[in-house]
């Protein structure tokens, strides 16, 4: 039998369902909310309710959107001929922070992992092919480059290789690129792993 009143226990249970939150942290957060002012606590509840009722997926790229299209797909200044493919909506944020990419995105919703039962049909890969091979929107250039920005993990690499192979057949005119692999700025060579350093060497560039 719980030592807490049922509403408090319910709050602890719900908070405990969040990723990375264990029983004790859930309990601490629940007591924090109980101590907080009613205004602050209800603001959190309203924010959760609003995000669940208003946020959906962009009909073009499957990024999070508060309308039919996300802000990036609605932005006329973005280059619609270059599409960057990412695993999750959260992967768009670090790419946007670089200010180096001015194209649009396509969110797959995960990465291929046949061992875990994640096959191409479970991701938005068919939608990507339709987007690349379909007619461009009026007044826009057709897609000329697809940047594969899946994570440099085993599943991310497998996803990139699969898409690259399919695009080579379905849209041979489109250039398929992959994010470069290399050393993080500020890191020591001494601590670099062999795979990353090997790829950094293979992809070295001439200094002009």
């Amino acid at each position: 039998m719980s030592t807490f009143a049922p509403p408090v226990q319910r709050l602890i249970t719900e908070l405990g369902k969040l990723p990375g939150i264990g029983g004790r942290t859930a309990q601490r957060l629940a007591f924090h909310l109980l101590r907080a002012s009613e205004e602050d606590a209800l603001a959190l509840a309203d924010a959760i309710r609003e995000v669940k009722s208003r946020i959906g997926l962009c009909e073009v790229c499957f990024n999070l959107a508060d309308g039919p299209r996300c802000r990036i797909c609605s932005d006329e200044r973005r280059d619609a001929a270059v599409v960057c493919v990412v695993e999750e909506p959260s992967d768009i944020i670090p790419i946007e922070r670089t200010h180096e990419f001015h194209g649009r995105y396509h969110v797959l919703g995960g990465a291929l992992s046949p061992i875990d039962g994640v096959d191409p049909e479970d991701l938005r890969i068919a939608e990507l092919y339709r987007r690349v091979t379909g007619e461009p929107e009026e007044g826009r250039d057709p897609i000329r480059e697809v940047v594969l920005a899946t994570n440099p993990t085993t599943t991310g690499e497998a996803t990139a290789l699969h898409i690259a192979e399919q695009l080579r057949e379905k849209a041979p005119q489109v250039t398929v690129t992959r994010l470069a692999s290399g050393l993080p700025v500020g890191a020591d060579l001494e601590y670099a792993d062999e795979l990353t350093l090997g790829r950094a060497l293979a992809g070295r560039r001439a200094l002009s």
């Binding site: 061992i115 085993t154 690499e157 497998a158 290789l161 699969h162 792993d193 062999e194 795979l195 790829r199």
Partner: peptide
């Protein structure tokens, strides 16, 4: 690292077989 097996990661078929 004793062996990174970097080349098998460059192809879909070897990656799948290793997995």
């Amino acid at each position: 690292t004793l062996a990174a097996h970097g080349r098998l990661r460059e192809r879909a078929d070897t990656l799948d077989a290793a997995a």
